[in-house]
Nucleic acid binder design. Structure first.
Lengths: 256, 256
DNA sequence: AGACCGCACTGGTCTAGACCTGCCCTAAAA
DNA sequence: TTTTAGGGCAGGTCTAGACCAGTGCGGTCT
């Protein structure tokens, strides 16, 4: 049973200059966050149109946006429903700090090294560069709520980030890359495997030698150029990956 | 300069039962593929509306879909332009046998159990069913090239697969589900973590107790109904997971 | 020549209706 | 008691207009 649209607080300001459907979208978003457990129904489009004094097409535009974000979903003949919030989504190429904040944890990092090195044969192959190419190596112990979460090592071609090493080690690598160097990661590949903690890694992560760890190797790209290769070792007792799957050819309705 | 809308071939069939905007979307898609290099402009929305005898809102719906697919992009005051084609990346919901064949290995399976059980509290929660609901439990040791690869346990609501237990255990579960029961997995969620091999699992997989394993819990859905919950333990030394990533909302800057 | 202004475009947003199909529930019929 | 036909309501699609806000060009004024 859908709740009454009257239960929604907030109103449209027609003089604000902000598009009405944007205002409604945000009203709905906060209403969902506050009062709608997953699976619950939103008021019908017609109810919302009446409640806010809008045309139904305008309401649909606001709802379309939230459906596109996968916050809610439509079911013909039934209504519009709140989807289960994505607890985490490593799969979306987010930075560690973004990721931890979404999980409601306090991210922190201890820098282990921040230096320029020459690409080894292995790193050259991974980054599709020539051996010996200067790289920035950035190795950190990442913490969540003060406890070790992972050991993280990023390699970035030095010519991509001129002057990076002159400053302080960044707190959020992806933020600095995008804001200071215009490198917004667009896509990537993760290689995921389980491994056992080596003595050095075990000491850093404060676990037993041989404990299971999740090893994630990531290649991140801007346009067609690889900009970041990273290897992370996550404590298995503290970290799980959530991956949405789709059968090829079974596209869910995206365009109505 | 935008071409004349008259240059576009194809027409709308109002009796076909297919939504008009879908027809127009496909007409535009093939027009783009044939006659529009990246960067070229589409006819304006108003031209298209006149050319096909449609309301502009309907034309916009067709264009919206293509913009959503990142095939084209809009620029206010200028027009609608063809984007560079992007690589399409999607995690696949494939079965074990499909997956192994893709990797060029010979899949095989040893059935450990194939029986009906009542849902425990844990399984009921995972499958979103009531406790005690009859389930089919199908536990296998999966091999690749004759060597143990993983231990796999599937739980399927019994009412979904009437008579399944009367026959032989299937060699490819997903194939039987789709061909015999019409259950084509459409989407799912994987929860991935690293874990240590328990004594029983270690014996089955022929590894040391405590060896790192990749634990993958999968929920697979047909429409909105969960049809399969599975837990798999993969040998870390033999299995890696490859996951493509895309940053959400990684809109490119206007490049014109 | 150079600065400016306005018009003719573009997409962006919005309205107030219309009719369709799909879903569920209920009341009547079997 | 079970089955079936409506009715009401959900979202899906479509129309024929409206006005707004950027963009660029061409003509005009200085």
């Amino acid at each position: 049973m859908a709740p009454s649209a009257a239960a929604i607080t907030g109103d449209i300001d027609r003089t604000s200059g902000t598009a009405i459907y944007v205002q409604l979208r945000e009203i709905l978003r906060s209403y969902i966050a506050q009062s709608c457990p997953p699976g619950s129904a939103l008021p019908s489009e017609r109810d919302l149109a009446e409640r806010f004094g809008l045309a139904r097409m305008t309401v649909r535009q606001a709802i379309d946006a939230l459906v596109g974000e996968e916050v809610i979903e439509r079911v013909v003949g039934l209504g519009t429903f709140v989807r289960r919030p994505k607890l985490d989504l490593q799969v979306k190429l987010t930075s560690y700090s973004e990721e931890m904040q979404r999980r409601g944890m306090v991210p922190a990092a201890k820098v282990l090294s921040f230096e320029q090195i020459a690409a080894s044969a292995f790193l050259a192959r991974e980054l599709q560069l020539d051996e010996g190419t200067p790289l920035v190596r950035f190795r950190r112990l990442l913490l969540a709520d003060g406890e070790p979460m992972s050991v993280d090592e990023n390699f970035i071609p030095a010519h991509r980030v001129p002057g990076l090493l002159d400053g302080e080690p960044p707190t959020s690598l992806y933020n600095v890359l995008s804001e200071q160097f215009g490198l917004v990661m667009e896509w990537g590949e993760d290689m995921i495997e389980a491994t056992a903690a080596s003595p050095s890694t075990a000491r850093l992560l404060n676990v037993e030698v041989g404990s299971p760890l999740l090893k994630i190797q990531r290649h991140a790209f801007v346009a067609r150029a690889m900009v970041d290769y990273s290897v992370s070792y996550y404590r298995a007792d503290r970290y799980k990956l959530w991956v949405p799957l789709q059968r090829p050819g079974a596209r869910r309705a995206r365009n109505h």
